[in-house]
Design a protein around this nucleic acid. Structure first.
Ligand SMILES: NC(=O)c1ccc[n+]([C@@H]2O[C@H](COP(=O)([O-])OP(=O)(O)OC[C@H]3O[C@@H](n4cnc5c(N)ncnc54)[C@H](O)[C@@H]3O)[C@@H](O)[C@H]2O)c1
Ligand SMILES: NC(=O)c1ccc[n+]([C@@H]2O[C@H](COP(=O)([O-])OP(=O)(O)OC[C@H]3O[C@@H](n4cnc5c(N)ncnc54)[C@H](O)[C@@H]3O)[C@@H](O)[C@H]2O)c1
Lengths: 231, 231
DNA sequence: CGCGCTTTGTGAACGTGTGCACAACTGCAT
DNA sequence: ATGCAGTTGTGCACACGTTCACAAAGCGCG
């Protein structure tokens, strides 16, 4: 087996698009499409073909000129690059409205992110079962993280508790956090954080909606997921 | 009253940060803080102070040198720029797991995005009440959109129905869509779409997690919401 | 085998976003 | 008045991201 050479850094913007390509390719693969051109993939992903080629070129030269990319091989390469060759169990903090919806959602597990546990600070919430996972007390967090080798945590608590939840996750050993609470989390260097903030999304839509005065405006920005994981 | 002059275009990246500033300022305002410096706001927002100043400069010169920005006035200006001077009712398509969590969430209404309605295609779901809103049949969508003057729609259906849901929304008169389904929506020119895709977020975290080999990597990207509203 | 068709991979130009550094300005003290 | 400490607003340089355009390369066919 050859030595795994040091991987070149992949631009943030590209990393955010690879999952999109991956999903599209996955759908094609199940339809027994063997090959796809950058043009075809670009169409399906809603981006420019040159962008697709440049993105894929960061993985290596896996295309065949005059033909395109072999779907199955490309899927393998993207998965490898994104670190999706093994599962990443996640732990959810906060078993409220949102935490329950997340825990009950199968899409996570299917994509390699099984819910290893869900915890809450409220004794009344502890014990109930959501999506096959029993809600446990937040004091069990370190135990869950360590025994299940969890490195990704999801914050689904009210905003006022989000910083506390994040600190507990970090103390328990988690190194990546997906934050649903509308607050800016302070975390130690080396911890990645990504934020999903619905109010922000709506307010951005509001901005463009408001400007929609008479003229049907075109192309107000791209549609990618360019948002860093801070550290 | 002076003529409202044609507003200059605000960079995408700035538009994505304004809601963050707005939330922070809102919290300060309720603590009776009258003035804030770009440095202070930057700290709370987790960004660079120069960036804050440049962002705010797009709104106009509303700061006072040597002093800072008057919180209440700045809140007003940002709200005006984002089009938050009036409510934007939203309609949710898909009353499943996620749709219910969204409808039951008060945070939307509080921030000026009241749920004007929630619809589903499944007769069994119609009639139940979630968060004070009765689920209606999707055929009522045009009526809801028109009578409540809705311009923002939320897609919370399974991926296979998402394109259908989007088309119904557009036909009903909606011009902005927030899409939770993991698919790329095709919409006519002039329709803004933003996407929230949890699997993508997790996969991006996975990428950085996987690279976390030995060296505690620093600063892997920013933490903003730079994602366009396509058209 | 050579030729034409197709599609990749990438250099280069352009556009957007970031952050430094500093002049311009404010307010206050003396 | 004048000076000084503090803070904004912005020109500039650089980094990052996007798109074009085209040479290089594979494929199939005669
Ligand atoms: N529900 C939604 O649709 C929605 C939409 C957008 C954003 N959000 C955000 O997601 C977060 C959760 O929303 P929700 O509707 O589920 O709220 P919720 O109040 O229903 O649930 C929050 C849960 O967190 C638990 N909790 C509180 N402090 C905790 C702590 N320190 N440690 C562990 N658990 C703790 C509470 O006991 C509760 O069960 C909020 O920040 C909200 O703003 C929710
Ligand atoms: N639940 C989560 O936590 C979660 C997380 C991430 C992403 N998502 C995505 O959000 C979407 C919804 O997820 P969910 O868990 O709520 O699914 P769900 O199956 O619980 O609910 C989907 C609802 O949409 C309705 N529906 C189906 N086709 C429709 C149509 N054409 N028009 C109107 N309504 C229609 C169904 O009747 C159902 O009630 C999915 O695309 C899912 O991938 C959900």
């Amino acid at each position: 087996m050859p030595v795994e050479r040091v991987r070149r850094r992949i631009p943030e913007a590209t990393v955010a698009r690879l999952p999109i390509y991956l999903r599209i390719l996955g759908e094609r693969a199940s339809e027994e499409v063997e090959c796809i051109s950058s043009e075809g993939l670009a169409e399906l992903a809603g981006v420019n073909a040159a962008k697709v080629r440049k993105d894929l070129s960061y993985l290596g030269s896996y295309g065949t000129r005059g033909v395109g990319y072999e779907v199955a091989f490309l899927v393998y390469q993207i998965r490898r690059e994104l670190g999706l060759t093994h599962d990443w169990p996640v732990v959810i903090v906060g078993a409220g409205n949102l935490g329950q919806a997340l825990a009950g959602y199968n899409g996570f597990g299917e994509r390699g992110f099984p819910v290893a546990g869900i915890v809450d600070i409220e004794p009344a919430k502890v014990g109930s079962v959501i999506g096959g996972v029993r809600v446990r007390h937040i004091d069990d967090l370190p135990q869950i993280v360590q025994s299940r080798r969890v490195s990704i945590g999801v914050v689904a608590t009210p905003p006022t508790s989000a910083q506390d939840a994040a600190e507990r996750l970090v103390r328990a050993g988690v190194t990546s956090i997906l934050n649903f609470a509308p607050v800016v989390l302070a975390v130690p260097r080396g911890i990645s954080v990504r934020k999903v903030d619905l109010a922000v999304e709506l307010q951005i839509l509001s901005y463009y909606e408001q400007r929609r005065v008479g003229v049907g405006l075109q192309a107000v920005g791209s549609n990618d997921s360019t948002r860093g994981a801070s550290a």
